[in-house]
Every structure is written in structure tokens, then in C-alpha cells.
Design a binder for these strands. Structure first.
Lengths: 388, 388
DNA sequence: AATAGTTTGTTCGCCGTAGGAAGAAAGTGT
DNA sequence: ACACTTTCTTCCTACGGCGAACAAACTATT
């Protein structure tokens, strides 16, 4: 996340109070989708008298839409308010090795406009042209931009992403933020997927999870306490570098674990098992093959064992409680998933649920939405606590 | 931490506003130790007009002490205010296998009173008798109690701590909280050490760190984003269970890693290397021995390699940026520490500083202080954010 | 030494607003 | 038709944040 310079303002100034109330109501409405003023009093703790003018303002702004009266057994029926997802738009930009894709979504994650193009040299320029074009006259509703880039990111700068032509440390987030005037967050794709699954997928019911993404490499996105954790240098989740086998060696940017157990590496073995067939989904093919071919079955066992040790390692360090499999790892069938779960349960020091991620390609988008919305909320300044 | 039932109150009610201002000032004063009203305006963002009565109240309560005028080149000299650490007392209770120790400290971590006793059967009863006795007539200043227990803790209940006679899931925190009427936090000793080093030790300048504690077992305390992370089931930091060598097996509660590389395990090898000598500090002895004995030097190399792989594993998952060695691991000499640092740097995907912890025995106490103070601060209700 | 200048802390008062209380609205059950 | 319940609005008041003027306390300058 890009830090906005925060002038030292009182935590309870008039302006902030108003802002906080507004945001409380919006957040409550966003979650409940449709609710009455009475429910708002319960959810936000604000008094009805305070809510009346506030809700009126939000209706005027288009945040809320007044619907007919709701059902009621007795007494005056509640006038229902519906949250208008279109009132908040976010842009999700995904940088891939050869192309850039830009989607405009409302706060439900419904895509309103999208566009893909070859990756131009000047990424910032491209983004700053695409986004306003796609948003059109709804520009005032734009709340934030989230940029997903392969590689490690920290503090708005993207590192280790030469694939998309990013120079190390380039403050791409800051540049876009200044030109578009909305909060911008930059993060790697796996972290965004984790955020997406947490916000709207297989992790919406928990506050800690780890998303294991197996593709060309092996990476993880970590959510602890409801927020993505990047670590000190943004390298949290670089589980491809786990030294699980002393003899394994990584090479120039490839970690020892992913050198052997990534989708790429598995694809090579699958090709060897079934010559002449170039697999598009190596893990799916391997699972298929293992039903008839003992060698494939044995190799599948190795893969599961390796992934299990990876997961157990993560559990030992952070105990996420739930692990979501994404990318090639989501191609396991139920039987293989069960075996993986058993292996994990056997060796992990805490109960851990292994599931498939459910959002697939849309995970990054949902993550971007959740990021951008969170970035749009000026954080309540944390009270500094602790001895000197 | 024990959850207090929070009635749904407005985030900006009059009472809360006042509370937040108070706490802001107290927190600023606690950190700065001695400061003027002018500095308070800068630090808290509150206006001078707001501060005047607030500071007066805090002086009356004993939180602040008015000192003489400070130095000034020009203009009216600042009237300095000194934070009175005695205004906030905390109790730190440490449960060990055979005894219980209870210390009363001010918010600087200065111990005011302490007492140790054999572990009575009814722990709650013992705590609730000791604490008021030790605090005496300063009871109104007691802000919280922190209880350190070996084993894993979560939600105020301690698990896996049969050594001190705790039944699984016993809500020891809740019981004490109800009887003493102050917030109580229960956590395992390693987590508290990490909090202590973060608050007042070798990690006070960073917001992410991992403390590696090597003793009878091997455990870690994890701080991310300035707070201790427990994970979903409180098992974060159970790095003794890391499956770094496939052939290693743990047994009944002992993890595979710690079975081979804990202080206990190392002690056995050291005894074998130098028969007849029962070491009190096996790692220190091993370092000593390795200067003359090639076999010891070789084994020391193995130990360092194993610990390095452990640290690298943690870095891959959470990237703490800094790792503090505690317990037997802090007995390494500078040369060994350098070797360990090199091994880590070689294999870790992010820059990681390996240092010794500096607080030693006092780490738990400082952690307890920081915990208790944090628990005494009613958290600002986080604004719920994110798409449904 | 008187005066100007500078910074710090306090008092005053206005304005905005949180929330209590009362009332209006809009239903259901008898 | 009336009583009753619940929801929402209006009115009012008391309180507190903070802008502005003021008082205090010191240094530098003439």
C-alpha cells in the first residue's frame, strides 16, 4: 500500500468524526446489502437521530437506494435501504509478462468494463490512459486502483519483476496515484488472490488463511488477522525458497522447492511418463494418468508428499488454519486432496483445513476490489501502545 | 487475549472520543517520557485548547508530573511534563513446571514487587491472592495481568501445558479477569518474550520480527505488523515441528526438528563429546569445545546448518526481516553467529538480520508489561471493510 | 532597563453535533 | 375503531472541539 502523507490530525476532530460515521454506515450497508435504518443503529451504534440526516445524504449521493417497506410482523414496517454497488468503482490492473489487462468493477466485483492490450513500454502512462477511458463519466465513483504484478512488491514499488519490464524499485504506485488522484495499491498477484479468496471466496469465513499457488513457480499469499501480511521486505509467502531438501538447489531467482515441485517441473515428468503429449494442465493429467499407470501413481505420491511438507512447514510457522490450493494445485481430484489433507493432519501441530480455492481467474480481481476499497478507507490511526 | 463483550457503541460517541483523546495523550507521554504541552499538540494532533483541561486532569490523576521549565533558546520556556510510570502497574505471572512467579512492574518494566512460590494446585486462586497482596494500596493503578505459560495458548485457555497441571481448555484467563476486574492476557512464554524484545529489546526499532527460542524444545514467537501473531489455533511459531528432514520423526508432543536440535538434544551430543561432564549450557560448551576438538567443530557446523535452515524456512513464509536468538541459541559466540548469518543470507529470499536477543530472563516480564498495557487499551473498533 | 520579539500555555466563546425525548407514521391484532 | 408496537423524524439541549484573543515567560536588542 502506498502511504499517503498524513498530516497530524486529531483522532477525534469534527471532520474525522463525520468521516468515520459515514464510513461505518457505508461499510455496514456494503456487507448487509439491504437493510433498514433500525438495523443500522444496531450495526453502527449510532443513534437514530444521528442517522437520519446521514442516510439522507448518502441517498442523495447515490450510495443508498430507498426501496419499499420490508416485511414486518407488527409495528411500522422498516423502510429498506439497498446498497448501490455502482457507487464505488475500482480499477484492477493486472500486469502479465506480455500484456496488461485492466478491469473496472463495482464493489461486488462485477466487471463493468475491461480491456486488454499488449504491454506498452510506459506502464504508468498506459494505466493512466486506460482507467479514465474505461470508467467514463462515472469517474467520481472511482475509489481506488489495485495493480497486480508478478514478483515481490513492497511499499508501492515492484521488485523482481523483470518479466514485465519493471525496473527495480520503480515507484509505479506513487506515479499512478498522483496522476489519477485516487489511492493505488500495488502487490503481487498471489497476495491479491489470497485477499480475493478471503473477501469473496473460500476464505470469507475465516480471518487467517494461506493460499498456495502453484504455477511456473510456487508462491503463497498470507492472510493473518484479516489482512495480507507482506513481511518486512515483502517476501512473505516466497515458499518456493523453502529448503526442505538439503540437496535441492535453486538457481537465479528460482527457489529450491519450486525448482522441483512447480507446475513446470511436474510437467516435465509428466511428459516423460507419457511421451509425445504436451500437457496443458500437468497436475490434472498426472492425476488422470495415475489411475492406470503405477509409475505415475508413485510420482503423484511424491508430489503430494512434497506439497504436504510445504504446507506443514507453513503451519508450523504461522498456523493459518486453512490452506487454499490455487493454480495447478487446484487440479487435484477429491481423492488426491483427501490424501494431501491426511498427510498434513498427520504432521501439522495444529488442525488445518486444505481446500481448493474457488475463484480461479477471478481471484485477483476480487482481491483488487477488496484492496482498493480498503485503501479508500483512511485508516483509523492506531493508538501507539507499549513501553518505550 | 480474552475478549471482553463489547456493547455496540458508536465509534464517535462522546465517551469514546474522550477516552481516545486521553489514551492518545497517555500513549504519547509514555513513549516520550518527558515532554511539553507543545509537543503533545504535535504528537496527538489535539489543539492546545483541548489539551489544557485534559492535561490538568491527568496531572490530578497522577499520570503526569509537572516538572520545571525546560530549556528554550527564545520565547516562553516549555513547562515539561513527565510521565509517571508508577501510574500504571501490571502483574506478570510466569508459570513454570514446578513453581509460579509473580512480579509487579510499572510501565517501564521496573519490578516493584515480586514473589515466587511452589505451584499450588489451584492456579487461579494463587494468582488472585498474590497479585493484590503484592500491589498493596496501589491496586487502583493495576492495569492488567499477563500470564505466561509453557505450551500453546489461544483465547485465554492454555493447551498442551500438562507440565504445570493445566487442563486443556481451562479458561484460566477468564477466571482471573472476573475475580480481579482487570484485563488478563494469557500466552505462552515464547510469544511474550518476542513481545518483550519488540517493546524494549533488540526489536524495538522494527515492526516485524521472529524470536527463536531454543531450550528443551524449539519454539518461535512471531511479531508481524507490530503485534504478536498467534495463528488460527495459537500454534504459530511451533517451529519445532518443521519437517526439514523427511527421516526425522517426532514423538508424543515433540516435533521432528526439536527432537534433534533442541538444547536437550545438543546436550546429549556434547556429553558424548566430552564424557563425564554434565553441561549446564550445552551450546556455550559446544562453542568452547569446538575451538580445540575437530569433532565438536564439525558438530557445531551441523547445528548451525540446521538452525539456518529453520530460520530460512521462517523467512520464506513470513519474511520477518529480523531474527532474534534466545535461550541456548543466544549462547553462540560472535564467530558462530556470523557463520549462521552467512548461511541464512545465502539461502533466504529476503534480507534477514540475525541477532541475539538482549533481554534474557527479563524478556517475558517486558512482554507481559507490553501485553497488559495493550490489553488495557480498549481497541478502536476496526471499520469493517471488504466486499461481501 | 525598557522594549520588542518569540514561543508557550490559558481562557473565552462560537458553532456543530450527539443523542435524549417527544411525536408522527405506518403497520398489526382485537 | 381502538389499542399497541415498532420505526423513523423533528426538536431541543447540553457538551465539547477548536479558532482566536490573551496572558505568561523568557531572550535579544537598543
Amino acid at each position: 500500500m502506498v502511504d499517503v502523507v498524513t498530516p497530524p490530525t486529531s483522532p477525534v476532530s469534527r471532520k474525522r468524526s463525520k468521516e468515520i460515521k459515514r464510513l461505518s454506515v457505508i461499510a455496514a450497508a456494503r456487507q448487509a446489502r439491504v437493510l433498514s435504518r433500525a438495523e443500522l443503529t444496531e450495526l453502527t451504534g449510532l443513534s437514530p437521530a444521528t442517522l437520519t440526516p446521514l442516510v439522507r445524504a448518502l441517498i442523495d449521493e447515490g450510495y443508498l437506494i430507498e426501496r419499499g417497506p420490508g416485511a414486518s410482523r407488527t409495528g411500522r414496517p422498516r423502510a429498506m435501504l439497498e446498497f448501490n454497488p455502482r457507487a464505488e468503482l475500482v480499477a484492477a490492473v493486472s500486469l502479465e509478462p506480455s500484456r496488461i489487462s485492466c478491469e473496472i468493477a463495482d464493489s461486488d466485483g462485477v466487471v463493468i468494463a475491461h480491456r486488454t492490450a499488449r504491454l506498452h513500454r510506459d506502464i504508468v502512462e498506459t494505466i493512466c490512459r486506460f482507467v479514465p477511458e474505461l470508467v467514463g463519466d462515472a469517474l467520481p465513483a472511482l475509489r481506488g486502483v489495485a495493480i497486480a504484478a508478478p514478483g515481490v512488491s513492497s511499499g508501492g514499488a515492484v521488485r523482481l519483476a523483470p518479466a514485465v519490464g519493471l525496473v527495480e524499485g520503480e515507484p509505479i504506485g506513487d506515479s499512478v496515484q498522483q496522476r489519477l488522484g485516487v489511492p493505488v495499491v500495488v502487490d503481487n498477484d498471489v497476495n491479491l488472490m489470497a485477499a480475493g479468496e478471503h473477501a469473496a471466496g473460500a476464505g470469507s469465513d475465516v480471518s487467517d488463511l494461506l493460499l498456495l499457488h502453484v504455477a511456473d513457480g510456487v508462491g503463497a499469499g498470507l492472510i493473518l488477522g484479516g489482512r495480507v501480511r507482506h513481511g518486512a521486505a515483502g517476501a512473505a509467502g516466497e515458499v518456493g525458497f523453502l529448503p526442505l531438501d538439503p540437496e535441492d538447489r535453486g538457481h537465479d531467482g528460482i527457489g529450491p522447492f519450486e525448482a522441483r515441485w512447480s507446475a513446470n517441473a511436474i510437467a516435465e515428468r509428466v511428459v516423460a511418463l507419457r511421451p509425445g503429449h504436451r500437457p496443458s494442465a500437468p497436475v490434472r493429467d498426472l492425476v488422470e494418468l495415475s489411475r492406470t499407470d503405477p509409475a505415475a501413481a508413485s510420482y503423484l505420491g511424491e508430489v503430494l508428499a512434497a506439497w504436504a511438507r510445504l504446507i506443514v512447514s507453513c503451519v508450523c510457522v504461522v498456523d493459518p488454519g486453512r490452506v487454499l490450493l490455487s493454480g495447478a494445485a487446484a487440479d487435484l481430484d477429491d481423492a488426491a486432496l483427501d490424501r494431501l489433507q491426511s498427510l498434513v493432519t498427520l504432521a501439522a501441530p495444529a488442525p488445518t483445513e486444505v481446500r481448493r480455492a474457488v475463484l480461479g481467474d477471478r481471484a485477483v480481481l476480487h482481491g483488487a476490489v477488496s484492496y482498493a476499497l480498503a485503501a479508500a478507507v483512511p485508516a483509523v490511526p492506531p493508538l501507539p501502545v507499549g513501553s518505550p
